[in-house]
């Protein structure tokens, strides 16, 4: 069975309907467990004190915020090339989730910055980039909402996602150029031997898995809703005409 089998909306509804309880259940177990692990069972950092616990919500949310935008770009590309409706609707369903993740990353970052940098908001490159990312999400969601015809909306938002991805990457580098920041470098990396202590990164990994599963579950719910809404619209039009 190839990946494209999912592209048939009826088959997608059947498979996603079967998978949804499992994904949602797994998310409902792993995310709270990861958060509880991070919150209750990790020691304080010798420099950052208890604020180190914020990475368990901040880092996964930030990762999801960026990767969901990437997913929207890929799904838009698939829609433009292969005209699979499920792909376009998945991109639409992902956007509000990505915007929420961006907000979480920004707010938790501000709460972290308050005691650590002495200021809740600094015009730091990373913070600014996330602010910009949020604006990209808002523009994308607004364009979906503004256009009535669903295929036209899918096409136009895909064009926006394509062009936007180019300028989002440019903004990232422009913002780096614009200011050297307070934000620390990446905490997790594969090629460095000096990583954070397993005491921290094991629960962090659990939280990342939990956020990912949550996203997957919400994406399935959202995409199923969009498919139903499209069908409802088609039925209404058929009855009116």
């Amino acid at each position: 069975m190839s990946l494209w089998e999912f592209a048939n909306p009826a088959r997608f509804m059947r498979i996603s309907g079967a998978a949804l309880p499992w994904v949602a259940g797994l998310a409902a177990v792993i995310l709270p467990a990861g958060l509880a692990w991070g919150f209750f069972l990790t020691p304080d950092d010798y420099r950052q004190g208890s604020t180190v616990k914020i990475i368990f919500v901040h880092v996964p949310a930030a990762m999801m915020a960026i990767n969901i935008y990437g997913m929207i770009v890929v799904a838009s590309l698939i829609w433009l090339i292969r005209r699979h409706h499920v792909s376009a609707l998945a991109a639409r369903a992902a956007a509000p989730i990505g915007a929420t993740m961006t907000v979480i990353a920004l707010l938790t970052g501000a709460l972290w910055g308050q005691p650590m940098w002495g200021t809740a908001w600094a015009w730091d490159p990373r913070l600014t980039s996330f602010f910009i990312l949020f604006l990209f999400y808002v523009g994308y969601i607004a364009l979906w909402a503004a256009i009535e015809d669903p295929d036209k909306a899918a096409d136009l938002t895909s064009v926006l996602a394509m062009v936007g991805s180019v300028f989002a990457v440019l903004s990232r580098y422009a913002v780096n150029f614009w200011s050297q920041g307070l934000h620390q470098g990446a905490t997790l990396s594969i090629d460095r031997d000096q990583n954070i202590d397993p005491v921290f990164w094991l629960p962090l990994l659990a939280c990342i898995a939990g956020f990912f599963l949550l996203f997957l579950a919400l994406l399935l719910v959202g995409t199923r809703t969009e498919i139903r809404a499209r069908r409802a619209r088609a039925l209404q039009l058929a009855m009116a005409g």
């Binding site: 938790t108 972290w112 005691p115």
Partner: peptide, 23 residues
């Protein structure tokens, strides 16, 4: 024991849980 940063840590978890619950 969250020490002096209790509001920041609790706030961060609270914000996250509230945002996810709302979504």
């Amino acid at each position: 024991d969250l020490g002096p940063y209790a509001t920041a840590v609790l706030g961060a978890y609270g914000v996250t849980i509230a945002a996810i619950a709302g979504l």
